[in-house]
């Protein structure tokens, strides 16, 4: 029996009797990171990185959470477990399992670029590597963060000069925080949607240092709304909530914006291909560094990416999961969004 089995509840480690990022309630869940498609509601107990805990508590409510830092080995039923930075979002971890000399790594979602908040991606050698491939096609090649930040800043300044607000759509967990230092350089007041604010406060209360933001409420002063710089989740797009910032320009921050068609479909004024996932080169580099005998590819362009790996000296298999493919898509069932209503 392999150390990790692919079940209809998610990745299951029989030897340790726990699941990793299960999509149905289980008794023990190890969580790679706090996005809602990986950290789901209903399990009896959760184990995650220290910085992921405040996110889970905000998202899933009170429960049984254990935490561990990076590179702090623990053991469950004789399976050695350690977390390693995945650099996807704050607290995101690759989970390494070792049992009877066999090593598996579950990557969760990851990127190779250090965004200044999510840590430095750590390559971990293993026999079996489970990798995401959200952007597993060679058309996805990211520009360095500094360059995209400069594009965003110029866009904000141009809007300002034209008397317009700049409304940026970004995932409320991860992308929104990543944008803050960029925006803080061109404005002294960053406004945020309630969903972004809740995540922000959860992180700040847990001791993570972030630039200051202001929540948009009915009491927000009128003069703040003109020419404002705002971060909101994409679920706010096209809603009456947006109108208060008029006249405004909208920009979408997502890896999908690398393709013109995807950008035009969003009907935004600008698209910034800023992603928290590895691009094509990043995926290949990360997989190579693991020296894994077998690579399991999940969520994304699994068929094409798997075939490419197999043609290039890797042993790759596709695994069906229920993780989201779309990094801009936040589930409407998300507890945080509900709080905002």
């Amino acid at each position: 029996m392999p150390l990790i089995e692919f079940t209809d509840h998610g990745f299951y480690c029989r030897a340790g009797d726990f699941f990793i990022d299960p999509w149905r309630p289980v008794s023990k869940a190890l969580i790679t990171h706090g996005h809602s498609d990986h950290a789901r509601w209903g399990s009896k107990s959760y184990l995650c990185h220290t910085d992921t805990k405040p996110i889970l508590e905000t998202r899933l409510g009170p429960g049984h959470y254990e935490t561990v830092g990076y590179n702090e080995p623990i053991s469950i039923n004789g399976v050695n477990i350690s977390l390693h930075p995945a650099a996807h979002i704050i607290g995101s971890s690759q989970i390494r399992l070792e049992h009877k000399g066999e090593v598996w790594v579950v990557s969760g979602d990851y990127k190779l670029e250090n965004d200044g908040l999510s840590g430095e991606f750590e390559p971990v050698k293993c026999h079996n590597f489970i990798s995401e491939c959200t952007f597993g096609l060679p058309i996805y090649q990211w520009k360095p963060q500094a360059q995209i930040f400069s594009d965003i800043q110029q866009w904000v300044l141009k809007n300002k000069a034209a008397g317009k607000s700049s409304l940026l759509f970004a995932y409320s967990l991860g992308k929104a925080q990543r944008l803050l230092p960029c925006l803080a350089e061109v404005t002294d007041r960053i406004l945020v949607h309630g969903a972004v604010y809740n995540v922000h406060m959860a992180l700040v209360n847990a001791g993570i240092k972030l630039p200051e933001v202001h929540r948009v409420t009915p009491d927000t002063p009128k003069e703040w709304l003109k020419g404002a710089v705002v971060i909101a989740p994409s679920s706010a797009e096209g809603t009456p909530w947006m109108r208060r910032f008029a006249p405004l320009a909208t920009g979408v921050c997502s890896g999908w914006m690398a393709v013109r068609g995807a950008m035009r479909r969003r009907n935004a004024d600008a698209g910034f291909p800023l992603s928290d996932h590895a691009d094509w080169d990043g995926l290949l580099k990360a997989i190579k560094a693991t020296e894994a005998e077998c690579v399991y590819v999940t969520h994304g362009f699994t068929a094409a990416f798997g075939r490419y790996l197999n043609e290039h000296g890797f042993n790759a298999k596709e695994v069906k999961t229920e993780y989201g493919d779309d990094e801009t898509e936040e589930k409407s069932t998300d507890v945080l969004e509900k709080l905002e209503e």
Binding site: L137, P138, I139, V259, R260, G261, F301, Y308
Partner: peptide, 19 residues
């Protein structure tokens, strides 16, 4: 792989520019 990318992008000129 070129074909795969072309189907995803939907435009030949853009596919080449991206690759």
């Amino acid at each position: 792989m070129f074909d795969e990318c072309w189907h995803t992008v939907g435009d030949l000129a853009e596919t080449i520019a991206l690759l």
